[in-house]
Amino acid sequence: MAGAPKQDDVVICIRGLVTGFGRKTIHDHLDLDVRRGEVLGVVGGSGSGKSVLLRAIIGLIRPREGTVKVFGQPLGEVEGGEMHRLEMRWGVLFQEGALFSSQTVAENIQVPLREYTNMSQELMDEIAAVKLSLVGLPPDAAHKYPSELSGGMKKRAGLARALALDPELLFLDEPTSGLDPISADGFDALIRQLQESLGLTVFMVTHDIDSLRAVADRIAVLVNGKIITGTIAELRKNPDPWIQEYFSGTRGRAALEGTEA
């Protein structure tokens, strides 16, 4: 992907996005491009609007100004069936997995399949098993209810549901938060592996500098309502005090040790 990205290669295109609650402005004329096939890590301090940005892109929040185009389609203008078709092309993993608590893991994965396709129950069961193995859950997890799963397993199950329709674009909201370091490393490796084998574009909101290093191709930092993008190496040279603090604080340094600055 050398040189300027072609229009086709931009999966998410945000121009002049303004969002806010009440009097508070969260994003102030923000621009961002996410290219096909990349893993973009979004970081920022608490309250800087990472999750809000994600919710604005998937249409859960209406922006005050600006446009968000996903797959070239401007959100807010597409409606009904067109919007459904768009939603089928992305998958979202919410922070706590957001599994439907009254359904088993297999049923959770089959929800979008049942809604959007007319597969036989047998085929859906088989596909649920495929998704479970893709996210590294044992087959016997299929018939468990979300309340019977640990936090890490819930996230994997949530990821399996997000992958149910084989989306091209995957949104992850803090995929490694609340996981122990070993599970978090496992999850990072999983995301990378899935991204490679399924050819996904990944938009990942995170706090976790380890997972940025392990997974992200590019990083977008939210500072003062704007966004600054670059690789880790590029961002470390950025003079912004928050970015300096983030990558050069004790945690940042420890995580980045061994990578070239």
Binding site: T104, A106, D125, E126, A128, A129, V130, L132, S133, L134, P139, D140, A142, H143, Q193, L194, E196, S197, L198, G199
Partner: peptide
């Protein structure tokens, strides 16, 4: 060529025992 990793990833799937 591009689909070889995908097939490999799916190949590992074990069938769930019916409930």
């Amino acid at each position: 060529e591009m689909y070889v990793p995908l097939l490999k990833a799916v190949e590992g799937a074990k069938p769930c025992e019916p409930y």
